[in-house]
Amino acid sequence: MEALYLTIPMAMCIAAFFLYVFITAFRKGQFEDIESPKYRMFFEEEYPTESKQTKTNSPDGPTSKS
């Protein structure tokens, strides 16, 4: 019985923390669009290329990565 005096308030604090985290995520728009992320893998994306300035400033010149 004495353990309940400790575990119930701890459970309430943990529940309040997760409720706070959920509300802040909801307000920031985390859950606005739940459909489009699963379709992103079907679209081709161009990866960013290195700028010419970083390639010319390297002392070894452009290197090839395998």
Rank of each mutant, 00 (worst) to 15 (best):
G29E: 08
Y20D: 06
K52R: 02
K55G: 03
E2Q: 14
P48K: 02
Y39G: 00
T49E: 09
Q30G: 03
M41N: 00
E35P: 01
A16F: 15
T7W: 08
G29F: 08
A3T: 10
T49W: 00
C13N: 15
S51M: 02
F31T: 04
M41E: 00
I14D: 00
T63L: 06
T63H: 04
N57P: 02
F43M: 12
S51K: 07
C13G: 14
P9H: 09
I14T: 00
N57C: 11
F43P: 01
E35G: 04
F22A: 15
F17T: 09
F31S: 03
V21Q: 15
A25K: 13
I8A: 09
K28I: 04
V21I: 13
I23E: 12
Q30R: 03
A15L: 13
D60G: 11
E50L: 12
G29C: 09
S51D: 07
F31A: 05
E32S: 15
E32Y: 13
K38L: 09
E32G: 14
N57L: 14
S64H: 07
F26Q: 12
G61D: 12
I34H: 08
S58Y: 12
T7Y: 05
E32P: 00
V21K: 13
I8G: 00
A15I: 09
F31P: 02
G61H: 11
L4D: 13
L6T: 11
P9D: 11
E44K: 04
T24E: 05
M12G: 14
P37Y: 02
